[in-house]
Amino acid sequence: MNKPPLLQLKDVHTFYDNIHALKGISLSAPQGAIVCLIGANGAGKSTTLMTICGVEPSRQGEIIFDGQPIHGLRPEQITSRGIAQSPEGRQIFPRMSVFENLEMGAFLRKDKEGIQNDMDWVFNLFPVLKDRIGQLGGTLSGGEQQMLAIGRALMARPKLLLLDEPSLGLAPKMVEKIFETIIEINQKSGTTIFLVEQNAQMALSISSLGFVMETGRIVISDKASALLENERVKKAYLGE
């Protein structure tokens, strides 16, 4: 019954030079779940994701993924273990085609057939990308770029998918579409999803667990449904 969590952070500290950005983060994401991290701008949400990926290495603390410690590994080693991130602000490769962007997502993989299958799957999730296969990434609309960023992360066939603000700057309809797809990815492939969001309502409604972050610390961690009822969360993040 009690499976070990896929991802576990224990008292993680990250610094940007002297700025103490993460002041001892502890959280865990169960296998196959959708987990979300909410909080205001500058709370350290993106830093948390970058620390998990090894781009901003932690100075202290443990990160356990799939039973193995991954802190101190280089980003490419972490990616090869099955963590992929769709970074904030739709960081796609603007002067590479949609096809090349997706191909880059599978950079560390060598199984041609598997890559082809996954690309078909991504096109299945986001049919619009297939229509734009030869178009340069930078010429896509905001929503399409977000899809491309998620698709690219999926091309690594991750066990854990980190999504940084997938709803940022998108029209409400597009946000709905993206969240539907996130659920679909989670249910169909069993990929564990770690979602970072400002859109707390939306994020909590599709997650099973939620963490609330304030100035580099996790201040509340609870079931997502409980957080939706939590007075403090309601007041600060749900605008009620």
Binding site: V55, T79, A84, I92, P94, M104
Partner: peptide, 10 residues
């Protein structure tokens, strides 16, 4: 094109 994204792609 994007160093961080490249890093995240492995």
């Amino acid at each position: 094109e994007d160093e961080t994204a490249a890093e995240l792609s492995g």
